[in-house]
Amino acid sequence: MRRRDSRPSTPPRPSTTFVSLTGPAGNIGDALIRRETLEWAAGTSDELVAYTGDAPDVWLTQLSIPDDAVVLRSKKSVPRWLWLLVTAPRHPVLVFEAGEIPLDRGNGVRELVFLAETLIVRLKGGVVVRPPRGIRAPSQPSLGIHRLATRLSQVTLWRDAATLATARTGRLAPDIGFSAGIRPGLDWNERTDLIVSLRGARPLPDERWIRAVRDSAERAGLGIRTIVQVREDEDRARELAELLGGVFEEWGDTDPLVQEERLRERYDAAQLVISDRMHVLVLAALSGAVALELVPQPTAKIREAFAAIGLDRVSVDASTSDPEHLREALRPTPERAAEVVERVRGAEASLAGIRQMIRAGIRRVRA
């Protein structure tokens, strides 16, 4: 007769998810997409380890990082991050942060670290998730290292077709910001604002631009309001309010989460939002406003990210557009707003499906 082993069985080690959540606390758009990244990571394991770099306390609050998470808060903690990856139990999950990836020559060492992280997780039978991202300034060797790391990842998503073509692997997906929640906003006829939010690092718009925006607001019966979604743009918003004869709303000492909600309420009441900040336009679209990038020689980033959800005519080059083209671009209509809402709903549904697919994949790996 076989003797029963009376030794207690060893309980399985808790599973772990690692998520990168770095970013500047003064940028609500960056906080938004990192928070949505955290939503993808949350609940996929027993333990959560978050790397936030040199972010201040307010960043943790903005992202709603759980109190029981292990938070690594400085670049000096990178060795500990790597050690926790190496010593993690089988089947860990690694979720990279969403956003833009600089791949210029100075980022080769960083990409080697990310490749090492990917290899560690794959060798431990885990899952690597790269949420929708864009590539900026691709160059060798950074691009080659990054391509290898993405091929080794089970989930690699890009927020625009040009980046997908550069990466040569993965699939197209909406920017993760489109999962931040659709808001009903006010009825079209109750919306009273034309909102402007431009980067402070670029030159002021010229007189032709100023006149076109003022005329558009007057024709539509809208008041002009300048707002601040990135702290470094505050002085520019003040200048634009003076030039446009509009109302300036400072960020000042307002708590970032309060400021975010205040901005979203402003978008709820806007017919048209003009910006060269992508996530200003994403939040505006989620509130049912017509989103428009109107600047001289705009970069392709905004145009291509919105094209990925099937929405064109978002980006207009103010330096080459004739007066008639400018008037048409600056004319908000309920039909255009309805098109925006339809595309945003599709993007939200697509992202929800991707999130479910990722969770199902993790369950299969651990089964």
Rank of each mutant, 00 (worst) to 15 (best):
S197T: 10
E100L: 15
A308W: 04
L63A: 08
R2Y: 01
A329M: 04
A42M: 12
I182F: 05
P102H: 05
L112R: 04
E218N: 09
R225K: 09
S45Y: 01
E249I: 11
Q356N: 11
E335F: 06
H146I: 00
T61S: 13
A300N: 11
V49W: 00
L172A: 10
D322T: 07
V49A: 12
T192K: 15
D255R: 13
A165Q: 14
S15A: 15
G353D: 15
T44G: 10
P132D: 03
G29E: 06
D5W: 00
L326R: 07
L48G: 05
L143H: 02
A349C: 01
E249D: 06
D67Q: 11
S139A: 14
P79S: 04
R277N: 03
A165K: 13
L286P: 07
L82W: 06
P141I: 06
E339I: 06
I101V: 14
G223W: 00
R236S: 11
D255F: 02
V95W: 00
R80K: 10
E117A: 15
L143P: 05
E100N: 10
E234M: 07
T37H: 00
R183H: 02
I135N: 02
W81C: 03
V273G: 10
V58F: 04
L257T: 11
R3H: 05
S142E: 05
L263N: 09
A300P: 15
Q154D: 04
V280I: 03
P8M: 06
D5E: 08
R73H: 08
R236K: 14
Q271V: 00
D160F: 09
S74I: 08
L294N: 07
R7D: 08
W83R: 03
V70K: 09
A270D: 04
R159M: 13
I101W: 06
P296S: 13
A349V: 01
G177F: 10
G346I: 02
K76D: 11
K76Y: 08
R231T: 00
L82C: 13
E265N: 09
S139I: 05
I210R: 07
A291L: 05
D233V: 07
A173N: 07
L63D: 04
V71Y: 06
A285Q: 05
L112C: 12
A162T: 05
N189T: 06
R343D: 03
L244N: 02
G43K: 12
S315T: 12
R159N: 07
R73E: 10
E261R: 15
A201H: 08
A50V: 15
T163Q: 09
R355Q: 13
S197A: 15
N189D: 14
A285F: 03
P12R: 15
L115V: 02
